[in-house]
Write a protein that binds this DNA or RNA. Sequence first.
DNA 1: TGCCAGGCCGGGT
DNA 2: ACCCGGCATGGC
Length: 221
Amino acid sequence: MKTPAASRKAGPYLIQRAYKLLFARFGPQHWWPGDTPFEIMVGAILTQNTNWRNVSRAIDNIKEKRLLEPKRLYEQRHLIPSLITPSGFYRLKSKRLTAFLKYFIEHYDADINKMKRVPTARLRRELLGVPGIGHETADSILLYAVKRPVFVVDAYTRRIFSRHSLFDSNPGYEEIRALFERHVPHRPKLYNEYHALIVRCAKEFCKKNEPRCTDCPLNAV
DNA sequence: TGCCAGGCCGGGT
DNA sequence: ACCCGGCATGGC
């Protein structure tokens, strides 16, 4: 029985302590920014490697045209590129969003409650099968729209935990996810908050161009 | 001004 | 199994 590389340093104690430090500093983050499950799914796709401010504009454009509804948006999919232009990579993302809409409509009649009857592992496989949906997007949808206890790994997670030497190797996505899910109780609310806190901390204290991290609460880990 | 932002995919080694 | 370039807009 060998210990996975990613967990050599970050055992249960560190993972839980990091959460407590982040929560103590920042408090609840009230994520995901979006009102309905469908809005969250759209946002998850549009925010790929993109600032949320730009994504927010794109979603506002969709709302203005009363198209933030799966079947209507799919019927009017020729409008998607112009609506989501502000979110960047708009030709690419139009295809990805359209592919997701098609999947959501054909498999679940665009009904989140039908989706909620499917076990997490199978849903993840299905989502990963949609072209343009990768690990992070799939898991964001699973956690924030379907409310499953899934740890979402993103660039911020890697940066924060590497910079504070909590990983001693360069673990892959699934390795990191398994590590956190092993040590965080399986409650969606907790995974929601943990991911949101990591993003908050990374934006404020753990920026890419400032390797210093002054005042970062995780300096105390 | 150049770098960055809540990735993913396809092609090359 | 990695590593890289492409994809695009808007803020600082």
